[in-house]
Design a protein around this nucleic acid. Sequence first.
DNA 1: TCCGGTGATACTCGAGGGGTATCACTGGAT
DNA 2: ATCCAGTGATACCCCTCGAGTATCACCGGA
Lengths: 290, 290
Amino acid sequence: MDTSEILETRELRYFVAVAEELHFGRAARRLGIAQPPLSRAIQQLERRLGVPLLNRNRRGVSLTGAGEVLLAEGRAALCATTAAARRTRRAGGAGHSGVACERLVLAVKAAASQELLRKLLDAYAAQPEAAEIELLPCGIGEQEIMLRDGRADVALMQTPFDSLAGFDSEELLTEGRIAVLPASHPLATRTTLSLTEVTDLPDLPLARWPRNGTYPPGPGPEIRDQTQLAQLIALGRTAAVCPESSRTWLWAEHAAVALTDAPPVTTHIAWPPHSRSRPLARLIRTAIQL
Amino acid sequence: MDTSEILETRELRYFVAVAEELHFGRAARRLGIAQPPLSRAIQQLERRLGVPLLNRNRRGVSLTGAGEVLLAEGRAALCATTAAARRTRRAGGAGHSGVACERLVLAVKAAASQELLRKLLDAYAAQPEAAEIELLPCGIGEQEIMLRDGRADVALMQTPFDSLAGFDSEELLTEGRIAVLPASHPLATRTTLSLTEVTDLPDLPLARWPRNGTYPPGPGPEIRDQTQLAQLIALGRTAAVCPESSRTWLWAEHAAVALTDAPPVTTHIAWPPHSRSRPLARLIRTAIQL
DNA sequence: TCCGGTGATACTCGAGGGGTATCACTGGAT
DNA sequence: ATCCAGTGATACCCCTCGAGTATCACCGGA
């Protein structure tokens, strides 16, 4: 493996910054360096790879096909690198033998799977050799990042919201969906609804959640967390389709109506492949037995 | 994200070399540098992470817990980094827009799933916008590495032999198992056998395949590829439990007997998560429709 | 036509990565 | 007891290469 064939972390960081900003000056500022060294570094990277990564049109920069590939792969590689640093540091202090971390970081989406989470934590803590579990509250879709870059060891994720791609996982719980409506809305008195009845309501556009960092198009408001959603529903501005367990956080101004035909939500416990720490294995076993 | 928190590729390469050799001198030779800079680099890495990675006992070096974590995570990170370089280079030459590589590299285990592979290649080639497919023959369990470090875009893998951990995959074909015996062996005349009848035969120890780079313990010969196996069976020295499709490569000196109770083998098509190239998506679709 | 803003180039400086020589320590053979 | 082979660590020097400053070349728009 020739050393000149290998990308340095610094080069990847620089390229990802430029590719995300599509602007050398801003990228350099973000990286805390001056613009000229950045230009040179990118040129050198292109020479080394023998492939143009950026189209320099005056008035801005755009990615070539190879550039898009390197952006995706480079992000992943950077994540893996920082994950290595973080997990190593966390594994510090521990003993000399092969045991990894004695503290597990569990990434959870705020206010999701509350019951399940409580049961899991209780069941695990009751075990004799339980490790300490640190909870890492995440925004929507953030668990994937946390798991990937080493800030978390294990996560609770929900399909079809979160992507399990690239992780090992076990299914924990499948639940139906409810429509959460303002209590004052005409449909709030129904005992059941079908999905088509709550989509495309002109007076009550469904809230939109980010998928992979961007929002799908639509008339409804863009939501970042559950509190925002709860408030907007209470104000009669929007409605949402949620897992049944969301009943735990409903307000008096909310109404929940079971949906008959919405695709179910499944909560999984997920972890990076090839993790082999004993505390993690025990937590997973505990979760499956719930 | 503080820059001092980030590991350089060079540091990872150095550490992985030392951790694998458990010897500074040999590691330095392998890296093509002198020993003193290597010692310094590792010390610096330990200082930076704030964690001891190696126990320096005179007479050799051993890994601490944190060291083992960094070895595993560092290998993964290095793989991801070289994968980024390779895939970017391969995506070169292509156009300016978001399209990735126009040539797909398919990793296959030599002589496995021969029929399936032929059908897949034919069906794919018959499509209008088929990309060129390059076949990358692999040793046992090598597809995982090829996929991980970017030498391959997609692979055919078999459970329970290969691990699909960390990849996306689709099931293609499940087949039973046969015992492959020397034609002269008494059991060769049977029409079916059970697993217990072919294991623990004192005169015919089962061949051993590597799992994760090492061989399980046992009396049988250690096998690296299918040709070696075929030869040893023909010579009456060993027997093996193979998928049914192995009948395609049997010799006259071989006999195949169906096994009634062996766990089946499933061939999957697997690819790195988050791959989004059109040719790959088409190949996967073609494979599923077979 | 000039100006604001883009990225590239020229030059200089200094940190740090790499080399050689050597040390300090240990286990084992005699 | 002594010496030797072999380990990793230290001391010291060189020089590459990454980063900064100043400047250029080029374009779009008022």
